[in-house]
Design a protein around this nucleic acid. Sequence first.
DNA 1: TTGTAAGCGTTATCAC
DNA 2: GTGATAACGCTTACAA
Lengths: 345, 345
Amino acid sequence: MVTIFDVVRHAGVSSSTVSYVLNGTRRISEATRGRVLRSVAELGFHPNAGARTLAGRRSHIIALVMPLHRGVYVPIMTEIAISVTTTARRHGYDVLLVTNDEGPEGVRRVAASGLADGVILMDVELDDQRIPALRAQGTQAVLIGLPDDPHGLSCVDHDFAAAGALCAEHLADLGHREIAFIGYGSGVYQRHAGYAERTLTGFRERAGQRGLRFLDRPCEGTYESTAGTLARIVADRPRTTGFVVQNEAAIGPLLSLLHSSGRSVPEDASVVALCPEQLAEQYAPALTAVSGPTRELGRVAVDQMIRRLTDARRGAQPEDERPLLTPTLTPRQSTARLSVPKEPS
Amino acid sequence: MVTIFDVVRHAGVSSSTVSYVLNGTRRISEATRGRVLRSVAELGFHPNAGARTLAGRRSHIIALVMPLHRGVYVPIMTEIAISVTTTARRHGYDVLLVTNDEGPEGVRRVAASGLADGVILMDVELDDQRIPALRAQGTQAVLIGLPDDPHGLSCVDHDFAAAGALCAEHLADLGHREIAFIGYGSGVYQRHAGYAERTLTGFRERAGQRGLRFLDRPCEGTYESTAGTLARIVADRPRTTGFVVQNEAAIGPLLSLLHSSGRSVPEDASVVALCPEQLAEQYAPALTAVSGPTRELGRVAVDQMIRRLTDARRGAQPEDERPLLTPTLTPRQSTARLSVPKEPS
DNA sequence: TTGTAAGCGTTATCAC
DNA sequence: GTGATAACGCTTACAA
């Protein structure tokens, strides 16, 4: 194993100089800097991680806690994980993958042992059990999602209210006047209602401003429940021509129900989905959809973490930030300008 | 921070005793063992990771290198990553997520710095640049996939030959006599041909044994190339009734081409896919498919890694293992017994 | 069955 | 602008 003292001998400097050169934490003359770097390269020196962690009291590792349970769209989680990892590397950090099956004890362990300098939590629930654990340790944390009480930590999430508003806006622009909003089932609203409610609120508000008549209905996402939901909508508001689907699971059922009931999309009914781009493109017709910038979510989370760690190191109290990322609506084949309804002859 | 010396004082024992109790590396009387564990729990002691790594010369961390490039089916990679993580935890190891954008330098870094005790490589190419880097360091490595020259490291992969054989077997059992095998494009064969070729070999062999007449054709997986491939197959072998699709990208095109050319699946043509279960279920009709045990892949990789690390620690030369996991065929709606062809009236 | 103490290879404080 | 050196908190011979 190549140690710092091999470099010391090879470059003819002290170990502190080598350390300072490598960490950039002290002004070094170009001459010695060059010599040290050359020796490092020549010898293939890689500072020992354990020693570095012990002496520096930080591991340069960020723990990323991934959800396991069904119901999360895997490719999105993976994309976030990857953007977290690459962003972390750019800051000289590595990423430790922690699954949720250890529960709150998992984050406690990695934080208390100094294995990780900070923790990024994905798929946060409103009343998340891991948050008190993190606070108790004084661990730096960034959440992807918004919990009930985010004090003492930073969060980042999509601007779901803006997403809801975009849906209303788009359908209004296309001349639709009666809209149905198909939401999630009650389970979701209880567990991490945050985004579900925020979307609905944003939608409602903009729909009101644009003079839309609208209806919102919960939906479990099964074929049966979607059928029931659609039937009620048609019964209550037969002139509904626009649909906003929030529950991704209901998209497939909705499309085939519309089809089998003789309404074609987008001629007779426009459908806007709130879902990832990849999903929207899988359907036929491809769905006009509102989605947030996935990779950005990971990038921002890491940037926040780095800021917190830097502040904490300087003895400053890290600022709790809470940015919301702006979603975009991508028009595809499932929405169209409202045409004059064909009268039955 | 709670250190081992806090436990020492609280339990009235020496630091080595605490260490031995926690690591189980020495016989300890039940009495002291109990006292130590109680103190540990009471004080909430978590051994400092950096110190542990430095003193013990191992990090209890396994690096998992994930592929980034398009063309890999993300949910599968994620599933493997999760099974790697949970299995590693059962052995007291954590998992460091490494992406491939650092190239061979990434594995060199985590290994040489002692950040990771070993490296698990996913999506291995035949002539993988990271392998020489690992060998040069003497790093313990396990590959998911089979490279050209696997000496000095362990591998685990699906038994693709068995998978190919299962396809032939199934179609033969259903009475099909003329089969077309739709493979990958030339790019795949060059990059990591391993599995592509092995599958084809297994298929060929069993097809021969069962007296099938067969044809194999490469396919890039685009709609156009699939159309071309299918056209050639029909031209060369008009009586073909069974299709084996290896290139997942060609599945969608193939199904719609068969449909639009008036052959219905499974009445007129049976289709067997070589792909993950999740994918097979997404199509209409749901595909009869051969797939390997995904989670098992991660589990076995970690078990092999642990064995290598244990051996190496004992001063023994780790054994290079190379297990192949047995795939299974799940019959769904895309295959059926060959019916007597309808004569045009 | 338990204790003593010498490292492990950095970082960061102090001194120059 | 550079050097010497004392931590950092464990593990693991070696002793008893």
